[in-house]
Design a protein around this nucleic acid. Structure first.
Lengths: 213, 213
DNA sequence: TTCTGTTGGAGAGTGGCACTATCCAAGGAC
DNA sequence: GTCCTTGGATAGTGCCACTCTCCAACAGAA
């Protein structure tokens, strides 16, 4: 299909598609002549994934590019590629080195991970950005003086573990490796707002229940 | 304390504090003379909360203002204020009316809420933004062709319910209503990245476990 | 008192970033 | 040949959180 049709079927303007092509979020179409290029179904799928990452996942374009590059790096194994893609997902806060709140948070995170028996994936050579994200979040709680005792964090960790099992079950329903990798990325990102909104609804419900009882 | 001291103790530049004052995210200090104003500990606390909402919660300034206004609206009951504050939190996606994906998502969400026995708080006169957020998220899954069967959503809903119980327990450790309201807002926002990063860590862990076994 | 520095306040400006409007040359349809 | 469309490149737009700059009003030092 032509760029115009890709635009129509995806609901993304041609100008934006051109922008994504330029930013290498979308592989170029197969050049037919100097002024025509042909796009396939995989472009459509990829385009929708990109939109999910950017709009739903509120991910900067540069991060989305890293995620996609990791996902399609043929030199890596399926599991590594999947890990690397999910790995590349956040990036944002990056806790500071000399902050005493961050230091305390780091120690607490390590305790939680140890108690959960999680090794937080040293195999990619560095600490996961999710680890940094977690430290930064707990440091914020600490800085504001809000409680974050280890038992409470373990409740969250245990529930996160259950979520992960459900998520991975869903990913395994896909037959081919490329589909599984793409699904892992998409489902990680797309289920985040699902989870957060369910939590808020549940809080409203629980609050109402308590004030009634 | 003076603006300069407030800046120093909070780590927020005077220019930014002035900006927040102008945007009514921070109540004005007590005017001593025409050119001096006195700020108290509550300004410091509020300032840190604002930073949490904006930086951790990635909330636009206008939304943060709504949240804070709801939280301190003296005409509302504690529970309503708390609800209204958490209520005001997102706002972003707002599903479209004529989208068939959104319609299907809406039906599915209603089923999930019914099965959970949640009434999603009609008492504030309108549907929660979290409801809209959930519909939009599921519509995205649908649009991309990713699975979102009701049983799977119920797993998430059940876990969200458990989280809400833990969250509300934490809120109830605060003695006074203003503290509880502020805590509800802060903890809702600040525990979101905690939960999301734990989920990603758990996914990595679970993935590793499965590829090993 | 006068001089100097600081304060709070207000408006204009900045930078980053996702996108978009405008051009342009090269084809293709008629 | 004429006109329209296409893909590609470049420069611009709009938004928004923040920041710069200026100003009048003091406060403290000399």
């Amino acid at each position: 299909m032509r760029l115009a049709e890709l635009s129509e079927r995806s609901g993304v303007s041609t100008a934006t598609i051109k922008y994504y092509l330029r930013e290498r979020l979308l592989p170029p179409g197969e050049r037919i002549t100097a002024t025509k290029a042909e796009y396939g179904e995989e472009h459509l799928r990829r385009l929708r994934l990109v939109r999910s990452l950017i709009q739903v996942g509120r991910m900067p374009v540069s991060t989305a590019r890293e995620v996609l590059e990791a996902a399609e790096d043929e030199s890596l194994s399926e599991n590594t590629r999947m890990g690397a893609a999910v790995w590349a997902l956040p990036h944002d806060p990056e806790p500071e080195e000399d902050d005493p709140h961050a230091a305390r948070a780091r120690a607490q995170v390590d305790t939680v991970l140890e108690r959960m028996g999680w090794s937080y994936g040293q195999e990619l050579g560095d600490l996961s950005p999710a680890y940094g994200m977690l430290v930064a979040a707990i440091a914020s709680l600490d800085r504001l003086g809000y409680p974050h005792d280890t038992e409470h964090l373990l409740v969250h960790a245990r529930l996160a573990g259950e979520l992960a099992v459900a998520d991975l079950d869903l990913v395994e329903t896909y037959d081919t490796p490329p589909e599984r990798i793409e699904a892992a990325v998409a489902l990680t990102v797309l289920y985040e707002p699902v989870l957060l909104s369910l939590r808020r609804l549940a809080q409203t419900e629980e609050s109402k229940r308590r004030s009634a009882g």
